[in-house]
């Protein structure tokens, strides 16, 4: 029993330390690839870490006293979700905790009287409304396939081959990849925030965060990225290294999509996600019922 607890504690500790390193590196690679696609040379791969350190050292400008609290809440719940994922907890609850993390950022953006930040927050809410049903359907599909809401810890079998989840859930996986574009704030679904401060939305949901607050939000994104790639891995994780490989390929595809598409409107996104995402996932789930 004690060994199990010790193992759990070590897993959580390793997750907390390693996840941002992996997330930061992937973000750096993302920026490099994006730059190459746009015929630029791009920043060094370690640039996200330099940015983070720079942001942490900046003057702590604030608009009100509660912003930092929301940013930290955003971070905490993302870390909690990732830790629960690594420990093999209830996947549905992990989704709810991820949603809590997003809600914290929304509240932080709405806590200031800035029109840009508020509009970004409203759009973020619309995004959650769009992708949350698809994610929950994914969990239902996994339950129907495995008979449990508790997921297998990701690294439980490193080398043994087995039937991957994808075998039962191909359409659910497609729907998941589709909503992942929204979750990663990639084009065509990047309308709650944008990478460029000179558009109609300024920086959207993160407009009024600066310095250390922004660093915390950036860090959260790295944790989230690792969690999403972990979810992709889960579909293939017998053995785990195939899953990791495919997760990286999927991430590359997301980068390509980001670069070749323009931003759409939220109405279009809501309709498209519900019809395509829910429709596709539901089709898969119905055949699992009948099987």
């Amino acid at each position: 029993m004690d060994i199990v607890i010790l193992k759990d504690i070590l897993t959580v500790a390793a997750t907390i330390i390693l996840a941002p390193i992996i997330g930061g590196l992937l973000t750096g690679i993302d920026r490099k690839i994006t730059a190459r696609m746009q015929s630029r040379s791009g920043p060094p791969i370690l640039q996200p870490f330099y940015d983070l350190i720079k942001l942490l050292g900046k003057e702590r400008l604030i608009v009100n006293q509660t912003q930092m609290m929301f940013a930290l809440g955003h971070l905490f719940f993302a870390v909690a979700a990732l830790a629960m994922f690594m420990l093999g907890q209830d996947l549905l609850m992990i989704l709810f905790i991820m949603a809590f993390s997003s809600i914290m950022l929304i509240m932080g953006a709405m806590s200031v009287r800035s029109p840009y930040s508020k509009i970004g927050a409203q759009r973020e809410i619309v995004q959650i409304m769009a992708y949350e049903p698809v994610l929950i359907l994914m969990v239902v599909g996994i339950f129907l396939s495995t008979g449990s809401f508790m997921i297998r810890p990701l690294f439980s079998d490193m080398f043994s081959f087995g039937k991957p989840l994808l075998y039962d859930l191909p359409l659910v996986f497609i729907a998941f990849i589709y909503v992942l574009t929204i979750k990663l704030r990639k084009s065509p679904f990047d309308f709650s925030t944008s990478h460029h401060g000179h558009q109609e939305l300024i920086k959207g949901i993160t407009t009024e965060f600066s310095g250390p607050q922004l660093a915390v939000i950036e860090l959260t994104h790295w944790y989230e990225l690792v969690l999403f790639l972990g979810l992709i891995t889960m579909f293939f994780a017998r053995p785990v290294w195939i899953g990791i490989g495919i997760a990286l390929i999927c991430y590359f595809c997301e980068i390509v999509i980001d670069n070749i598409s323009a931003r759409m409107t939220w109405k279009w996104m809501l309709q498209a996600t519900w019809i395509v995402g829910i429709g596709v996932a539901m089709t898969n789930i119905i055949w699992l019922y009948l099987k």
Partner: peptide
């Protein structure tokens, strides 16, 4: 999720 978070956001808004 939508209607609660909108409302919480409004009442937690702080003026400068």
């Amino acid at each position: 999720l939508v209607f609660w978070s909108k409302w919480i956001g409004i009442i937690l808004t702080l003026s400068f």
